[in-house]
Design a protein around this nucleic acid. Structure first.
Ligand SMILES: [Mn+2]
Ligand SMILES: [Mn+2]
Ligand SMILES: [Zn+2]
Ligand SMILES: [Zn+2]
Lengths: 138, 138
DNA sequence: TCCTAGAATGGACAATGTCTAAGTCAAGCA
DNA sequence: TGCTTGACTTAGACATTGTCCATTCTAGGA
């Protein structure tokens, strides 16, 4: 039983086979799958699950704050079950590998008042891009 | 004559009416338009310009390093003619307004070696999100 | 066991982006 | 100035990602 599923159950979610497999697919570290990747893996466990249900379920998990949406590439959104520890992302420009990373300090302090244009800033998103050791050695 | 057009001409680009209007549309500060927004503004100046040409031209400008692609929302990519001064973006979550901002210091120094997983990092992208003064007072 | 609100389904539709075949033209050259 | 040619443009088909809706199904309580 995944932690994610455990938390969702605790919120009074009606438990269905479809929701269970979506939660199972998202279980693990450094998981950042697109909706269609989640669908493909879910179909392997429950062949009749539909695309719409995967999209719906992911959307609900996001609304509940149990999954976050990540847009590291400029293609599909990715779904990240690591919603309870703030973190940023490190992306390999070659192969697309994504790692969770935890920078030190408060990135907000790097932005002087003169550069805030009167905005109230509530969130900072950081994406580090580079080459992973695997791609570097190839 | 825009700076952008001037630089492109200097690279031996074949100059066409279409490329000229795309460059004109991108002239200015804090410009972050989607491809279809560029197309709409270009059509106002040159009614027969096609969608494909706008996409092609923007893609070439990006390849030449004269325009950068920005993905601040999770919808369409935006095209930014401010390619020669490194900067980050401040986005209003309410109305979508985007400002160029220049944080101090090197954002890379916030990421300890232990969090680099052997990657060679070449670039950091930062998006600040909040509420603009206009939306805050409304 | 039965009911019903909530969930799942398939497919249409929308938004964004890519590709191609055919027509057009900018720019170098006679 | 008027060819020639390869680069450029065009319209529209197609692909990917995501949303929406009418219908059918079912989890879980009475
Ligand atoms: Mn993550
Ligand atoms: Mn910018
Ligand atoms: Zn890699
Ligand atoms: Zn605003």
């Amino acid at each position: 039983m995944s932690d994610l599923l455990e938390r969702l159950r605790g919120r009074g979610w009606r438990m269905t086979a479809q929701r269970r497999v979506v939660a199972e697919v998202l279980d693990g570290d450094h998981i950042h799958l697109t909706a269609d990747e989640v669908h493909a893996r879910a179909v392997a466990k429950l062949p009749e699950i539909s695309r719409a249900t995967v999209y719906n379920t992911l959307g609900e998990m996001v609304s509940l704050g149990e999954v976050i949406e990540v847009s590291t590439d400029r293609r599909a959104k990715r779904y990240d079950p690591n919603a309870h520890r703030p973190h940023q992302h490190l992306v390999c420009a070659r192969c697309g590998a994504i790692r969770d990373v935890h920078p030190v300090g408060n990135p907000l302090s790097d932005l002087p008042d003169s550069e805030r244009f009167g905005f109230t800033i509530s969130d900072v998103e950081v994406t580090y891009r580079g080459t992973c050791p695997n791609c570097a050695s190839a």
